[in-house]
Structures are given as structure tokens and as C-alpha cells.
Design a protein around this nucleic acid. Structure first.
Lengths: 252, 252
DNA sequence: ATGAATTTGTACGTATGTATA
DNA sequence: TTATACATACGTACAAATTCA
């Protein structure tokens, strides 16, 4: 967007420096300054150009390698990897920040809202005593262009935090982001579980696919500091449109 | 196994120091020296005890945090996290080393072996020109105690590397390990893809579950240096016994 | 085929920031 | 408020893999 977006200045009082560097590199990649398949400048060059230490650059590159955006080889350099297959891939996150980005590119249109009391199976799922109150929301998540639904979502939020979410009709950000802003507390850890299901009539109908089609259910538990469960959510993704992919590196 | 397995000595000419430290910590955890739910000694204490720098300890702890074995909180310490639900266990890997460990704890009993030539769908899956030759093996992977099969596996190896695997009848190590020993080349990267299927009669029968049951298919592509595809494999895991879980941390 | 230059990987040291108890 | 313990960030040096003259 800028005339020259290789302009970079560290901001004070915000994110850690290495994340700022990571974000900067990412934006230059998507700008086309560092095309897919090419090598980045060397770590030392980047460090010199940005006025940070090589360690910091390495840590930034490390986070992008974990996300699969970059790969590195000794004696060669750091390669920009292919972006994501725009249709499939991508919609299951590998990191908190990625989860955040995905949510920002989609819209969660909320269908139903209600106060519920956890009983039986739900209480076990949530790992709480039966009777604990939660605020429950359900609806469809659409891609930015609203072409067709890509997931069915259900969210349970501790009822003391209901104020953070009860007025939302369309969420354009991650639900956990609303919670963070409401409480001022940062979600420290998200546990994610993936399993297959066959779609029942109701959800298949909402997603515009056939009953009995296969899907992946991604269940997430969001923990604040001290490992307090703040949010529980699950998401149903039709199998023919989404797969989950990860890259396992040699070390680390 | 030792009288005192807190005995630790860095070995020369082997793995990087931080991985040795990670492995040491892991074994002390499974020994019960560091029980689940307790805090590890501080980073400085570990560093002093082992005679390595605090950075190295941090890097070791970092790899175990990525695997979900540990979690850390500022001002508090580093907590030993619950192992995995012993039934569903951890049979989908998050890192190369974990994949290696899992394979070592199981047995791959090979059913069929043949030379195949990649055509049509297979050639596309493998990302190679039609007609390229592969050595194909298929069979069941059992837990160490051979109680009941837990996955159906199919492996495709570049036919020039067939010598690495063609005499195996029961593999007690990862197939990629045989390839590494044969070629002397290390697998640099493994790409992993997860999607759901409904089991057909044949595979359901082999796994001892019902036809139509849901399963996860984990497809893996193994790349050597220079991103050459050395192995392609997929694994079918019955859904009711396995789920895939990951933990997303706040930063990384 | 050898060796030098390049580039990432590992390891150590030190200092300061920040969340927690 | 103070002390503790992890988090970030700077620096240095050398090892290991690759490339190329």
C-alpha cells in the first residue's frame, strides 16, 4: 500500500520485536517483494537492514517456518514457500496468530444465543462441575465474500464473560478476541482437537451439503492465565473442502 | 533403568546438545522424577546441574513445549503437562522425532510388496510424471503388545531406494529411518495431511472394525535435501480410538 | 577433487523486561 | 514491595552444509 513498504520502524510498547520482524517479513512476502520460491536476504542482511540482532531475525524466521511460510537449508538460505492452496488448506490454524488471522478474514453470523447450564456430557466436555453456567452461541462462518458457508460453529463462554459477546450478531474477529478485550486478559493457550464425523441432516442442511457427508470437527479450549477455561468452541468443516496439513521439520 | 537416571553426560558427535537435554528431561518425566502437574527446576538450576547454558535449556524446553509435554508461565515456572490419554494416545505426530518414537513403539507387519508404476491419480498424488517406478508396501501397524491393529498403512518408496526396504517383513522402526540408513541422507521435512474417510469393507476387516466406521487418513510426504520426494505413505486410523490434538501457544 | 567463501545451526554470555507470588 | 522465574534481546564464536572457483 505504501510507496515503499520496505520501510520499517520498530514500535515501542507493542508486540515483541521478533514478532514485529516476522510480521514485516510476512507483509513483504505477500507484497511480492520476496516472491515464492526465491530466497530471502541472509539473516545478517535482514538484521543489518532492520537494525536488530541476528538472533531476533532468526526467532522471527523461526515463527514463519513453524507456520510453513519459510523453509531454511544450511549453506543455502531461507526459501519462501508456496502460500496456501486458497480453497482447501489454511482454515485450520497452527498458531494463535494464524487462528486470529483466519477469523479476521471470515464472518461468523450468529444464529442462536442462549444461557445454558452444563449438564452430563457437556459438563464433562467442558471439564467443569454440572450446573456451571455458560453463554452459548451458534451459527455459520462465511468467507469474506459470503460465497458459501464453510463451517458450522458453536461457542460456549463462561457466563461471567457473557457481556463480552452477548451483543454480537456478526463477528468479524475471533470470539476469543472479544473476550480478551472485555477482560483485558490474554488467552495464553488454545487446545485443539480434530476428529471426523458424518454430518447429520441439520448441520448438512446449514452447510449446503448432503446428509452423511464427512466432516472434520475441530474442538478448541481457550485458557487464560492460570489455565482457567474461558471459552470452549467447536467447528464443523465439510471434508471435501478442507483438510488439515502440517509440516514436520528435521529438528525442533 | 539406571540406578540413578539423573546422571547425565553430554555425548560428543551425536545429536545437538539441546536435543540431548530435551531427551534427558523427557526421560526424567517418564521416570517419575518430575511428576505430571509439578514444576520443573528453574531454567538456571537445570542449566547449572547439567553444565550447559540457560539458552540451551530454554531451547530444549521449547521443543517439549511444542510437543505439549511442558508449559511455562512467567514468574511461576515450567509445568509438566499430562501425558496423553493412554488409550487414544499420541499416534499422530507433531514432530519428526515424535513420529520416530511412535514408530519405534509399534510394529509394521508387511502384507504385500510390489513394484508399481505411478499412473493417473497416484502420479498426481505423488507429484511425479506418470510411469515413474515406486516400490509399494502395505500392511498393518500394531502396538508393541500386538493387542489389536491400530492402523492400516501403505508406503511408496522411490524404486531406486527399494533396496532399503525390500527385505523387511516386520518393521520395528520408521520406514523413513531405513531409507536414511540406506542412503545416508537425512529426511529434512515431512508434510502431513489429515482427512476423514468412511472405512470400506476391506480395510475395516483388516482393522477389526465395522464397515462404514469413520477414520482419519494421515498422508505423509517425506522430502530429502533439496526437497526431493523420497517416500509417500498414508495411514488409516479408526476414529473411535484416535484423535489428533495440538496446542496453540500465545507466542511462538 | 580440493579448498575457500557463504549461509544457516548451535552454543555460550550478559542484560533487562514482565508476570507472578 | 520485593524476590522469583520465564521472556526478550543484544552480543560473540564456532560448527556444518552447501556452493563455486
Amino acid at each position: 500500500m505504501d510507496q515503499k513498504s520496505n520501510h520499517w520502524k520498530p514500535e515501542l510498547d507493542t508486540a515483541p520485536l521478533y514478532l514485529q520482524v516476522a510480521h514485516h517479513l510476512e507483509s513483504r512476502i505477500s507484497n511480492g517483494d520476496y516472491p515464492v520460491g526465491t530466497l530471502l536476504p541472509t539473516e545478517n542482511e535482514i538484521a543489518a537492514a532492520l537494525g536488530v540482532s541476528r538472533q531476533t531475525v532468526r526467532q522471527a524466521i523461526g515463527t514463519l517456518r513453524n507456520k510453513g511460510r519459510l523453509s531454511a537449508r544450511k549453506g543455502v538460505g531461507t526459501r519462501v514457500e508456496a502460500g496456501f492452496d486458497p480453497e482447501r488448506k489454511r482454515f485450520i490454524a497452527h498458531s494463535r496468530s494464524e487462528l486470529f488471522e483466519i477469523a479476521a478474514e471470515t464472518e461468523f453470523v450468529i444464529d442462536t444465543k442462549e444461557e445454558v447450564s452444563a449438564q452430563g456430557k457437556l459438563a464433562i466436555e467442558l471439564g467443569c462441575r454440572p450446573g456451571r453456567k455458560f453463554f452459548h452461541m451458534a451459527g455459520i462462518r462465511y468467507p469474506g465474500n459470503r460465497s458459501r458457508p464453510f463451517s458450522w460453529n458453536e461457542v460456549y463462554v463462561d457466563s461471567r464473560l457473557a457481556g463480552a459477546v452477548k451483543d454480537i450478531t456478526v463477528a468479524r474477529s475471533a470470539i476469543f478476541h472479544y473476550i480478551e478485550q472485555f477482560t483485558g486478559e490474554k488467552i495464553q493457550e488454545i487446545q485443539q482437537e480434530i476428529k471426523p464425523i458424518a454430518l447429520d441432516e441439520v448441520i448438512a442442511g446449514k452447510l449446503g451439503v448432503s446428509t452423511g457427508d464427512l466432516a472434520l470437527v475441530v474442538t478448541r479450549r481457550y485458557y487464560g492465565s492460570g489455565r482457567r477455561l474461558l471459552e470452549y468452541a467447536f467447528q464443523v468443516l465439510p471434508a471435501e473442502r478442507f483438510t488439515f496439513t502440517t509440516t514436520l521439520r528435521a529438528e525442533s
